[in-house]
Design a protein around this nucleic acid. Structure first.
Lengths: 213, 213
DNA sequence: CTTGACATCGAACAAATGTTCCAATATAAT
DNA sequence: ATTATATTGGAACATTTGTTCGATGTCAAG
């Protein structure tokens, strides 16, 4: 013998998980042994008991394949909590304000929670129509996730309605006195200024999703 | 005898589900029989074969408790089908080829399947570092989902490694004879040409995700 | 060097588990 | 009715599977 892996129990645990994922039922002692290089079933049993001691698994003694994975196991319980459902509300176009009436059909988009902070309320998804927001690095067909709010912090990308030209646009917002600086996301483009009362913030852009191919 | 439930198979299926929920592993033939009032194991086996015929379960013959629930069974199967787990592999930078070695820690990103077509294999997620891909409407910090493949169709956005300048870039690819036209996604920018042997396609860009705010 | 805890095998065994074959009834089809 | 098909039992049997017990080999602490 030369293997002295102190991580044997871990290896066994991993194998049980993998086996369960593919087979839908737990492995037998001999299968575990075969996969982890353990020749004796008693030896496997020995490790299994340890794993049970430490709370990783539960053994239903006396019956075959009576192994339950505990705690850190279940894959889906995890994933379910990791996803946010965002209602999809149709299009955002330069020529009209955003409409926040839900579409008939109750469409939603699932997005990994890792992308968001704590606040996942008032989110909605829109598809950008037209390439008028290319200066925000956003193109026709892109999907934007917006958090509805009427005031954003300096430097945040927002969906705003400009009364004067009468259009919706996506820009970084900086309040500077009674003026608002609208800064394109594309750093090669120059900002411009609008009187504050002309700028109606529709919401904060929290994500842009572009599908290709 | 009085029970004439034609729904025996259904009953058995239900029991298997319930048993799996509580025990985490499938029941034995005798347990099924006991719970559903079937006296003979061969009889249970008989029904199990039927259920397999109809695609409700899969049997791993010869081994104990070798029953898998299929299709309409699994409660999570649904949720799982709606989300694709994409492994996250770190950064994509202009100055180096993409590395596809998984990160230690096995991080993944969950993305709604509605965004993808049928083929969700060979996907991986990368974070863009630097603003050198701004002409592809992709900025520093954006996440790109790439499908690994060495050949893309004309017009598709791909991650390519250019031997000559020695850099990774994201461009729309058009094969034109022994030349490749590399077209920036930003329609205001001009394309350029490279000899085909200088262009190494790393994968197809299927999605871009930008987090803001 | 000895000792003891830990790791590892092996073989014998009993229990559990699925299969096969045969028989007896129902049920439906003709 | 009669025959064919589906339903249900039973018991014998071969495997699979987990357990028990004894025997080594390792390696660090005393």
């Amino acid at each position: 013998m030369k293997a002295k892996l102190k991580q044997k129990p871990q290896q066994i645990l991993d194998f049980i998980k993998a086996y369960r994922d593919t087979h839908d039922y737990p492995p037998s002692l001999r299968e575990i042994g075969g996969a982890t290089g353990i020749a004796s079933t008693s030896h496997v049993s020995y490790y299994l008991d340890q794993l049970e001691e430490k709370g990783y698994i539960a053994r239903d003694n006396r019956i075959s394949r009576g192994i339950q994975l505990l705690g850190a196991a279940e894959p889906f319980a995890h994933a379910a909590a990791e996803v946010v459902s965002v209602p999809y509300l149709g299009y955002i176009v330069a020529s009209a304000p955003i409409s926040v009436e839900p579409l008939p059909g109750d469409e939603t988009v699932e997005i990994s929670r890792v992308f968001f902070g704590h606040d996942t309320s008032n989110l909605f998804a829109l598809t950008v129509q037209g390439s008028s927001m290319i200066d925000a690095l956003i193109n026709d067909g892109d999907m934007v996730i917006i958090q509805q709010q009427e005031r954003v912090e300096n430097g945040q990308m927002a969906a705003v309605w400009l009364d004067d030209p009468g259009e919706t646009t996506l820009k970084k917002i900086y309040y500077e006195g009674d003026q608002v600086r609208l800064q394109p996301a594309n750093p090669t483009m120059a900002p411009f200024y609008e009187p504050a009362e002309n700028v109606r913030v529709q919401g904060k852009v929290v994500m842009v999703i572009r599908q290709l191919g």
